[in-house]
Each structure stands twice: as structure tokens, then as C-alpha cells.
Design a protein around this nucleic acid. Structure first.
Lengths: 238, 238
DNA sequence: CGCAAGTTTGACGTACATCAAGTAGTGTGG
DNA sequence: CCACACTACTTGATGTACGTCAAACTTGCG
């Protein structure tokens, strides 16, 4: 509905506002080699609903969220939309490693990302095993996330999807029972393969059952973790 | 229903029945470096419906299909099943790069695969950029495939899914209009997030519309490519 | 405060699932 | 080669979870 125009992007080099804290498989933090990575990053500001790249664009950059949140999505010709994933601070995205992006990336809110030139990252990875492992780990995380989503979309009911989603956001944002959700009901629906009405009804039902208590629309407290986990994993709680 | 037991696996070293023909991004065939890969592969025979690995198993091997076909799937507690992907001759799978596999791999038919030890492949990749790029390209292909499936499952109707599936199998198996499908209706249904009845009705409908003509249940001729493509991409043909 | 956008709730429709009954392939033993 | 059983597939009748349409209600921003 609302036209999503490309934002005015303002790249400013070597001003990464946060240290790279990624700890890769094996447990070592490898700060020294990741400094190399930090050196090639450029900070970029994106306005709410503006896009970082569109499906079909040359995929020549990789991104990391610093603050705010990002969604990757695809639109079908008749307006149906599917969101592939959400990215929170610390997450990498845009790592398609194909010639062109197959999804569009948009900011959920005013967002700051660090952008890395793909060519430089690639050659860095070839020479530096730590970077290589980091890239691998990012790709694998993406693959795993996508495959979990496939199971969810293919075989779970609306309630199960919702429970699964809430638990997933919880985990990704630190594991506290009080989670905030930067995305709208529309975004949730388009991620879960549902409509906003079904999502809304589900949330209301969960409140009634006291699985959750709402602070406001974008902030929720999980009060029935066990019940939600049972639902999400496909046990029939009825 | 039918219990799927682990097959009696008979590994015989350095007997790769086919040359590695993968052409990686950039177009060069890099046969010399891939010979290294071939050296660490072991040929394995798997009986129909036997599993190569189960979800939860340590992921210490990567596989390539030589002949036959493989599915990766997950079963929910109540018997619902989702197939993540099918793998035809030439395809790599099992490349989770996590500690354990999150899906089970089973043979659709009597199948021959080459199995590579993960540790060796990993160290090979660190020293050999061609192998590294090959691994990357495999991961990225997997990610892209999974994300396409997400869109399909999240936002397409039963007919659209079927059309999409037929075209996908066509592409993957060489692009001929006469395609054979090693998977059962059950497998198709579990891949597409549908029931066998819905798949069957869809196929019948496509025959009626002359989008396809069946040679037999596992062999089909596509006779309305345009119509199928329109359907698959989400245009409403009605 | 007041409007517009986002969310919730209700009434109703429909695409696909479920249940059930055939029909056609596929392998086995005589 | 055919009879038999078994499994896979097809087709029909019916149910239901979720979508669609519509109207309140709520929230946030100028």
C-alpha cells in the first residue's frame, strides 16, 4: 500500500559504533582478525520503511544491523507478500552470495547498519580463516533459520506458528520473558504466512489463556512459556 | 507408518563412479583442485527408504548423490512431516555445518552417494580457495532453495505450489519437458505442505487443462509450460 | 485535540483437510 | 502367464481452520 522509496543513504567510513562481538564456532573470539572486517565497514542510516536493496539489485554489499531492525521480503505480482526473516542488532544479512539479491531488505524502524563491500569481504575470507568461518557460520545460521521456517509454514497451525514466533523472538533478543517486537501485525502475518486478523485473534486467544500479557502492541510479557513451547513443537495441547 | 530403519551401509573408499563436474561461480571448472575432493570421498549404497542420517545425529559427513534420489525431512511428534528438499544426481546435501543435523536424510529409491568426511572437507576448504568457493556455492544454493520454498509455502495456493514444483523438477533434471519424478505423491505433499489428496486432485486438474500429460505416475510430460509458469509466479490465471 | 493508521472483533465464505470408497499399478508365488 | 495381495493413487462427500469483508476500537502523531 504505502510506496516504499529508497532512502537517502549517508555512508560514512570507519565509524562502527559498536565492537564486533561475534563469537564463532569453537568459542574463540578472534577479535584481532575481525578488526580487519571492521576496517572495511561503512555506517549507513536507513529511515523506517526505506529499502537497503531490492530484489534483483546486484548483491555487492553485506550488512550488519547496529540498531533498529530489518526485514527481507518478496512481493508477488498481486500484492501477496512473504517475509523471509527479521534481523535484529548484531545480525548479518544480505549475504546471498549470488549475482543479485532475490529479496528486498527494508527497515522496520529508523535503523543503523554497517555495510561491507562484498568483493573485499570475499578476498578477506580467502586469506583469513577466521573471517571465512564467520561467513560460513552466518550462511549456515541463515540456512537453518530458513529451514525451520519451512517446517513452520508447511506443517504448523496458526496457533503453533504464533507460539513458535514469540519464542523465536524471545531467544533472538536475549531470552528475557519481556520481549519487544519492532514489527507490526502485518509483518508478523507476512512472516508466518497468515493474515493480520488471524495473528490478532491468536494474540487475543493467548492473552485469554494467559500465555502472554501485553504491555502494549509492541511489547509483550510471556507468562506461559511451557504452554507456548508445547504448542510450538507441535504437541497437541488442544 | 512404515518403519524406516537405517540401511546396512557398505562404504568402499576411493571408488567415485563419476567425475566431479561442478562448475562454480565464474564459469571455470577447476578440475585439478576438485581432484583433491574426489580423493577423500567414499561411495555408499543406500536402500530405498533407508536413512543416511537422522535429525540429531552428529553432522560429520557431507554427501553427493551419484544415482537415485534423497529427501531431507523432519517429523513432528504427531506424525506430520515436512520435506526440506529433494536431491538428484550431482546434488550435495548434509552440509549443515552445525554440530548436529537438524533434518533426517532418506533415500527415495535405491541410491548411491559419495560421502566426504566433514573435518577433511573443512581443512581442505581452508587451504584451497576453489574448494572453499564450491562449499560456499553449495550453501548459497541451499539457502536460496529454502527461501524460495518459504515463499511458496507462505503465500501460494495449492495449484500454484504444484505448478512451481513441476517446473522446479523440470529445471533440476535437465530442462526437458519430459520429466520423471522419483518421489511419491506423499513426498510431493510433504514437500509442498499439502495432503496427498490435494496433490492428486491438482495433478488431475492439470491433466484436464492439458498443462501436463501423464506417461505414468512417476513420469510426466509438460505440455503447457506458459500456463504453468504463469501459475507458479503468482499471476491469477483463474 | 483530532485525524489517520494500526489493531481488534464479528459475521460469513472458501480452499484445503479429513474421512471414506473405489481403481490402478506392483511384486510374489503357483 | 495369471491369480493374489498389497500398496499407491484417484475420486467423492463432508468438515473446518483460516481468509475475506466490514465495522468498531485504540494508538500515536501533527
Amino acid at each position: 500500500m504505502t510506496a516504499l522509496l529508497r532512502s537517502s543513504i549517508s555512508p560514512t567510513n570507519h565509524a562502527a559504533p559498536r565492537a564486533v562481538l561475534a563469537v564463532i564456532e569453537g568459542g574463540r573470539s578472534e577479535a584481532e582478525s575481525l578488526a580487519e572486517l571492521q576496517a572495511i565497514g561503512a555506517t549507513v542510516r536507513v529511515a523506517k520503511n526505506a529499502s537497503l536493496f531490492q530484489g534483483g539489485d546486484a548483491s555487492d554489499r553485506v550488512y550488519k544491523v547496529v540498531s533498529g531492525a530489518v526485514r527481507t521480503c518478496r512481493m508477488l505480482v498481486d500484492g501477496r507478500r512473504q517475509i523471509a526473516d527479521f534481523f535484529l542488532p548484531g545480525d548479518f544479512f544480505g549475504l546471498d552470495w549470488q549475482a543479485t539479491h532475490s529479496f528486498t531488505a527494508e527497515a522496520l524502524a529508523d535503523t543503523v547498519v554497517i555495510s561491507y563491500p562484498r568483493r573485499q569481504l570475499e578476498s578477506l575470507a580467502e586469506r583469513n580463516p577466521a573471517i571465512q568461518r564467520l561467513v560460513m557460520s552466518m550462511l549456515c545460521k541463515g540456512l537453518a533459520a530458513s529451514q525451520e521456517q519451512v517446517v513452520m509454514l508447511g506443517r504448523q497451525t496458526a496457533h503453533e506458528r504464533l507460539a513458535w514466533f514469540l519464542l523465536r523472538v524471545r531467544e533472538r533478543s536475549g531470552g528475557s520473558d519481556e520481549i519487544d517486537m519492532p514489527m507490526s501485525r502485518m509483518d508478523m502475518a507476512d512472516y508466518l504466512g497468515l493474515t493480520i486478523e488471524t495473528v490478532s485473534r491468536g494474540m487475543s486467544e493467548f492473552k485469554r489463556r494467559q500465555y502472554i500479557s501485553a504491555i502494549n502492541t509492541h511489547q509483550i510479557r510471556l507468562t506461559g512459556l511451557n504452554a507456548l513451547q508445547a504448542l510450538a513443537s507441535g504437541e497437541s495441547v488442544h
